[in-house]
Computed example of a mutant assay.
Amino acid sequence: MMKTVLCYGDSLTWGYDPENRARHALEDRWPTALAAGLGEGVHMVADGLNGRTTAFDDFTGDCDRNATRTMPTALHAHAPLDLVIIMLGSNDMKPAVAGTAHAASKGLRRLLQLVRLHAWPVEQDPPQTLVVAPPPLVETADPDFAAMFEGGVEQSAMLASFYADLADEMGAGFFDAGSVAQCSSVDGVHLDAKNTRAIGRGLSPVARLLLGH
């Protein structure tokens, strides 16, 4: 029986390449690497949007970046789902958006509730959920990104511990992407191809366990 996995995230899931500000090749994005690790019988849906936040409005974007508003649509569109992987929080580090790891964890709690309480269009058990803490931001000489994420290096370093506690409390799986990947100092936020792939590979055993695959 084919299992469906939704990877819901921001530019790290979309595949933003800090070197040339383009998009990583499909094979270099972490959902693709995860699909390869899980093998046949798994349908991977990648829903990454640049600038997406957990639960906060960002009116500088040209589309709705607030996941609390957009995720229910994705859940409906891709149902039935067996596993929902959420990797968000980096954009919450922008002071203009939220600016703290604590705020991001509150936003992520709301997203987990939305999955749990969703009115599915088909008969299905609630899917397994997997919370992924994005790799902590690093210092960068890029003036625009440094200003946009001011204070983010310190705050993002706290995401993994907040998220681990939250996942434990909400009965979700947890993975710290910072254990296998590091942000690029080019802009301090995004990942090169090697690090993006590493997240997909690192997630494989956890996702396999949650899927019973």
Score class of each variant (00 low, 15 high):
residue 33 A to P: 02
residue 68 T to S: 15
residue 190 H to C: 07
residue 152 G to P: 09
residue 132 V to K: 01
residue 109 R to Y: 12
residue 21 R to C: 08
residue 81 L to V: 08
residue 160 A to W: 07
residue 97 V to Q: 04
residue 137 L to I: 05
residue 41 G to Y: 10
residue 153 V to Y: 05
residue 84 V to K: 02
residue 94 K to W: 04
residue 184 S to K: 05
residue 89 G to L: 06
residue 210 L to C: 03
residue 29 R to V: 02
residue 105 S to V: 06
residue 136 P to S: 08
residue 206 V to S: 12
residue 6 L to M: 03
residue 111 L to N: 04
residue 37 G to M: 07
residue 165 D to K: 13
residue 213 H to I: 15
residue 36 A to I: 05
residue 5 V to M: 01
residue 194 K to R: 14
residue 33 A to L: 11
residue 61 G to N: 13
residue 53 T to A: 13
residue 145 F to Q: 12
residue 23 R to H: 05
residue 6 L to P: 01
residue 137 L to P: 02
residue 128 Q to S: 13
residue 126 P to K: 07
residue 211 L to G: 05
residue 105 S to N: 03
residue 191 L to T: 04
residue 101 A to Q: 10
residue 155 Q to H: 07
residue 96 A to F: 07
residue 73 T to H: 13
residue 199 I to V: 12
residue 161 S to R: 14
residue 76 H to Q: 11
residue 80 P to F: 05
residue 24 H to S: 03
residue 74 A to C: 12
residue 200 G to F: 01
residue 29 R to I: 02
residue 132 V to W: 00
residue 31 P to V: 02
residue 141 A to W: 01
residue 123 E to P: 04
residue 133 A to N: 07
residue 161 S to Q: 14
residue 92 D to A: 01
residue 105 S to T: 11
residue 110 R to K: 12
residue 43 H to A: 10
residue 143 P to Y: 09
residue 208 R to G: 03
residue 19 E to I: 10
residue 118 H to L: 02
residue 136 P to C: 06
residue 34 L to N: 02
residue 64 D to V: 15
residue 3 K to W: 04
residue 177 A to Y: 05
residue 178 G to H: 06
residue 148 M to H: 06
residue 176 D to Q: 08
residue 96 A to P: 01
residue 110 R to H: 11
residue 182 Q to K: 14
residue 169 E to P: 08
residue 80 P to I: 08
residue 65 R to Q: 14
residue 167 A to S: 08
residue 85 I to L: 14
residue 207 A to E: 11
residue 204 S to N: 00
residue 57 D to L: 14
residue 158 M to A: 15
residue 26 L to S: 09
residue 179 S to L: 14
residue 17 D to I: 00
residue 36 A to N: 06
residue 177 A to M: 05
residue 97 V to P: 04
residue 166 L to V: 12
residue 109 R to H: 13
residue 172 A to C: 13
residue 74 A to K: 14
residue 24 H to P: 02
residue 73 T to L: 14
residue 91 N to K: 07
residue 118 H to Q: 11
residue 10 D to T: 01
residue 178 G to V: 08
residue 35 A to K: 11
residue 81 L to G: 06
residue 88 L to K: 10
residue 22 A to I: 00
residue 32 T to F: 06
residue 158 M to W: 04
residue 64 D to R: 10
residue 14 W to S: 00
residue 33 A to C: 09
residue 79 A to W: 10
residue 80 P to Y: 06
residue 18 P to C: 03
residue 115 V to F: 02
residue 82 D to S: 09
residue 142 D to G: 02
residue 72 P to G: 09
residue 178 G to K: 11
residue 76 H to L: 06
residue 184 S to N: 10
residue 93 M to R: 01
residue 73 T to R: 13
residue 137 L to D: 03
residue 109 R to I: 00
residue 113 Q to R: 15
residue 193 A to S: 12
residue 80 P to G: 06
residue 151 G to P: 12
residue 117 L to M: 12
residue 83 L to A: 07
residue 107 G to S: 05
residue 20 N to Q: 04
residue 153 V to L: 09
residue 208 R to E: 15
residue 15 G to Q: 03
residue 178 G to N: 10
residue 64 D to C: 15
residue 174 F to D: 07
residue 44 M to T: 03
residue 122 V to S: 11
residue 59 F to A: 15
residue 68 T to P: 08
residue 139 E to D: 14
residue 125 D to H: 12
residue 113 Q to D: 14
residue 195 N to H: 15
residue 147 A to Y: 06
residue 127 P to S: 05
residue 96 A to W: 03
residue 75 L to A: 08
residue 187 D to S: 02
residue 194 K to W: 02
residue 194 K to P: 00
residue 62 D to H: 14
residue 39 G to R: 03
residue 119 A to F: 08
residue 189 V to Q: 08
